[in-house]
Design a protein around this nucleic acid. Structure first.
Length: 264
DNA sequence: GCTAAATGTTGAT
DNA sequence: TCAACCTTTAGCT
């Protein structure tokens, strides 16, 4: 289930299992047959993640670009791999491991130039090495668009999805409806910093837990129903003030917020 | 067993 | 603004 932290984990997982080894690549379902044939037998040299985009780098500058969309998944396991069942878009196998891709929005071969074009469309990704928040601030501070909509725009900040949008806005006690340009620099800086913290915690633990200080998040220690402040908690009492959590569609997705803590 | 919704994006209207 | 993409799961029956 893919926000940016999931994609970065996947890049690491592919790297750990396959990096430096020749892999077989196939498309049992057939929709990626041509690309798979071109990659088959090549060495996976490196992996990269940018926002919600995953890149697997093979010999001779061949990049596999994968975007999971809403319900794409990678499943990993040890060889021998099971007989392919259902719509298995792509299977990578080698070095004792296999990885199966299903349901992705994008699974395609790209050139280095195409890869950089994809990256150029994206805003700073808090999970990359030294993300520069300035382009995000520039967009935000000039925009009359609601902050809840801007956060979902991958050209503003890459890797944020519907959960992080709702949770980060709550943690900042910011109304999702405030125009970007009404957000002050200190508020933005605090939000950017907090976003990095919760996303790094998600990267470490593999799940989004925003109700603890990020450095204390641990897999399994927080019940799933306690993991979020507002996301998917419509009608339930706000954990801070007891006001029922509100919901409405914004940017095509269900937005959740506390009308009292996040007034204005 | 069926239906709706889901951590997303694109392209047509 | 909406349908399409294509898969899994939760919540019904």
């Amino acid at each position: 289930m893919p926000e940016g932290h999931t994609i970065h984990r996947l890049a690491r997982e592919h790297g750990a299992r396959f990096s430096g080894t020749a892999v077989s690549v196939s498309s049992p379902q057939g929709r990626f047959a041509e690309g798979a044939a071109l990659l088959d037998g090549r060495i996976l040299e490196r992996t990269d993640a940018y926002g919600k985009h995953l890149f697997l780098g093979f010999t001779e500058q061949r990049w596999l670009h994968v975007h999971l969309g809403l319900y794409g998944t990678w499943t990993f396991g040890s060889l021998p791999a099971p007989v392919p069942r259902g719509a298995l878009r792509c299977r990578v196998a080698g070095n004792g491991s296999y990885a199966d891709l299903r349901g992705a929005t994008a699974c395609e071969l790209v050139t280095p130039v195409e890869k950089s074009l994809i990256e150029a469309r994206l805003g700073p990704d808090p999970l990359r090495r030294r993300p520069d928040p300035e382009p995000a601030w520039a967009r935000l501070s000039r925009s009359r668009t609601a902050i809840g909509q801007l956060l979902m725009d991958q050209g503003v900040v890459a890797g944020v999805g519907n959960v992080y949008r709702a949770e980060v806005l709550f943690r900042a006690r910011l109304s999702p409806f405030r125009a970007g340009q009404t957000v002050g620099r200190p508020e933005f800086d605090a939000m950017w910093s907090d976003l990095g913290s919760v996303m790094r915690a998600g990267l470490r633990s593999g799940r989004i837990v925003t109700t603890l200080p990020p450095h204390r998040s641990r897999t399994g220690r927080v019940r799933q129903e306690d993991a979020h402040y507002v996301y998917r908690r419509a009608g339930q009492p706000c954990r801070a003030c007891g006001t029922p959590v509100a919901t409405q569609v914004m940017a095509g997705r269900n937005l959740f917020w506390c009308p009292s803590c996040q007034a204005g």
